[in-house]
Structures are given as structure tokens and as C-alpha cells.
Design a binder for these strands. Structure first.
Lengths: 139, 139
DNA sequence: ATGCAAATGCAAATCGTTTGCAACTAAGAA
DNA sequence: TTCTTAGTTGCAAACGATTTGCATTTGCAT
């Protein structure tokens, strides 16, 4: 019934992992939970400052690295630009980036994944992770 | 029979495109033609200095950009690191990066390409280019 | 040869990101 | 609750990759 605590969120899990839940981290987690895009560090910083203008950009960077290490978020380095982030909700997917708007569309193809495995296999490798991005424009 | 001029190379084509063939550019083109790896700008610079120690790093960067614009080379931005280059010999391929050695293995899958097109299609997009990298380790 | 726009080397600037350090704070102990 | 202290912060400076301004040089068409 506590509507302030809508989601268990990552806080509990992070605390579990020995991570201190500080004010900046709370704010960044909140931003990540509410975002529906793929913001970069600067975008997250700007949103954070609106909630607490004492937050620093380095803390954003440090927190993103921490969350990445803990597996709470995923980092994407698209075409040239800065790293962009999204919560790692378990489900793997790839990205289609709209060249005109920068918008990111998520998709998943089990068939392609399987082919990738086959290829790596045949080259004597085991895939640790992969990256597949389609850059295109609406028609 | 002229063994000094093994390949026509890009010089002629670039000249055609109104690009001046300067000493630094000659050297960089030579390095690219002879390379069998995927060097970054610094690596190219180091190789270039051995042939002419007056070459500057900025010229390497400027030349890479020029060659990229002219379609003579392709730029790859792998996982974090600096851009790495390879001649654009027409044939498209993707990359498998060895996480332990950084070595790059090229491969191509017509099947995957086709699936990518289908996916973009179904999302209402037209692919301009794509990027697919597998990161793995030998087993 | 001559002239001039294009290309160069150098140093300084830029961008995204990381880091050293002194001040601050979360959270377990007392 | 206050105490304690290792973990965390903000700030500014450092960083690595890349770009840029500018005065000087150089291809190459004449």
C-alpha cells in the first residue's frame, strides 16, 4: 500500500551486494527506473540535477560503472557517440537506431542468435557477448 | 612486370576524385595496403614514422577521415577502444574479436544479413548500415 | 618555373570519461 | 542514540582519442 515504494527496485539487491544506498544513487536509480529511452551520462546528470542540484557528473559516471559491474544496467556504445544506458531487465535484445532521430528501437531474433553461435562455434570460439546494431531510416 | 607497382592501389582513384597525392598520403596508403590487421590511428602513425619521421598524428587522423569519406577505408569502433581501420575492398563482413588477444577475425553470413533486413523491414525501416560484433574466447 | 588552393605540422582545444584528494555520510557497533 | 570508519562524494585536474586554428609548405595545373 505504500505508494512511495512502487517497486522493490534494485536498492535491495544492491544493498545485498554490499553497496551503500546513498542519496545520489537513489536518485540515479529512480531516473533509470522511470526512463523510457536510452540516456547517456550527461542526460542522466541533467535529470538528476533537477532532483538534487548538488549531484556531480563524476558521481553519475561512477554510479553507472558500479551498476554495470553489478549487472544492474547495460552500457551501449553506439556509433561514435557517448555510452548510453538502460536497466538490465534480464531480457537480451539488440538495437535499431534511427539515423534521423537517434531513437533506439529494441528487437530480438532468436534465429540470428543461433546463427551467431554456429559461426563462433565453427571458428573455434565461444561467444562471451555480442553487439548487433542496425542503423537505418524510416520508409 | 613492374614489381614496384604491385597494385594500382587507391592513388589513381583518389586523384580522380580530386584528392592530392601527397607524401604522407602515399605512405599511409602503402601502410594500409600492406597491413594484415586492423590498426588504429596510433598504430598507423607509428608505422608511418618509420618511413618518414616528419609525419604528424593529426595528418594520420585527417587522412583516415578523408579515406573514409571517399569510401576507401572502413572505420570500426570496437568495444571501448579507439577506431580501427581496414581498406574497404568491397566485400562486406562482420567481426569476431578475441577478448584475450584483441585479434579480429572476419566472417560473413548471408543468412544473418537477410534476417536483419527482414527485421528492419517489419519495423518499417530501411537499413543504411549495420554493425555486428561477436566478442569471445577460443575454446 | 610560378601561383595558389590544398595539405601539413604543431600546439592548443575539444569531448567523453576517469581520477586524486579532502570533506562528508551511510550504516554497523557500542 | 551517538560513535566510528570505510565507503562515497564533489571538485578540479588529468586523461586518451580526436579535432581544429594557424602559419608554413607543397602538389600540380598553368
Amino acid at each position: 500500500m505504500n505508494d512511495k515504494n512502487k517497486q522493490p527496485g534494485y536498492e535491495a539487491l544492491l544493498r545485498e551486494a554490499g553497496v551503500r544506498i546513498t542519496r545520489p544513487r537513489k536518485i540515479i536509480l529512480k531516473i533509470l527506473a522511470e526512463r523510457d529511452d536510452h540516456p547517456d551520462a550527461m542526460a542522466i546528470f541533467r535529470r538528476a540535477v533537477r532532483l538534487d542540484d548538488s549531484i556531480s557528473l563524476s558521481t553519475v559516471y561512477r554510479t553507472m560503472k558500479l551498476l554495470e559491474d553489478k549487472g544492474a544496467i547495460q552500457r551501449h556504445a553506439f556509433q561514435g557517440g557517448p555510452s548510453r544506458f538502460e536497466p538490465a531487465d534480464g531480457d537480451h535484445h539488440d538495437h535499431l537506431i534511427d539515423l534521423d532521430t537517434g531513437k533506439v528501437i529494441e528487437f530480438h531474433s532468436e534465429k540470428i542468435e543461433r546463427l551467431q553461435d554456429e559461426i563462433a562455434q565453427s571458428l573455434g570460439y565461444e561467444i562471451v557477448h555480442h553487439r548487433m546494431e542496425l542503423y537505418g531510416r524510416k520508409k
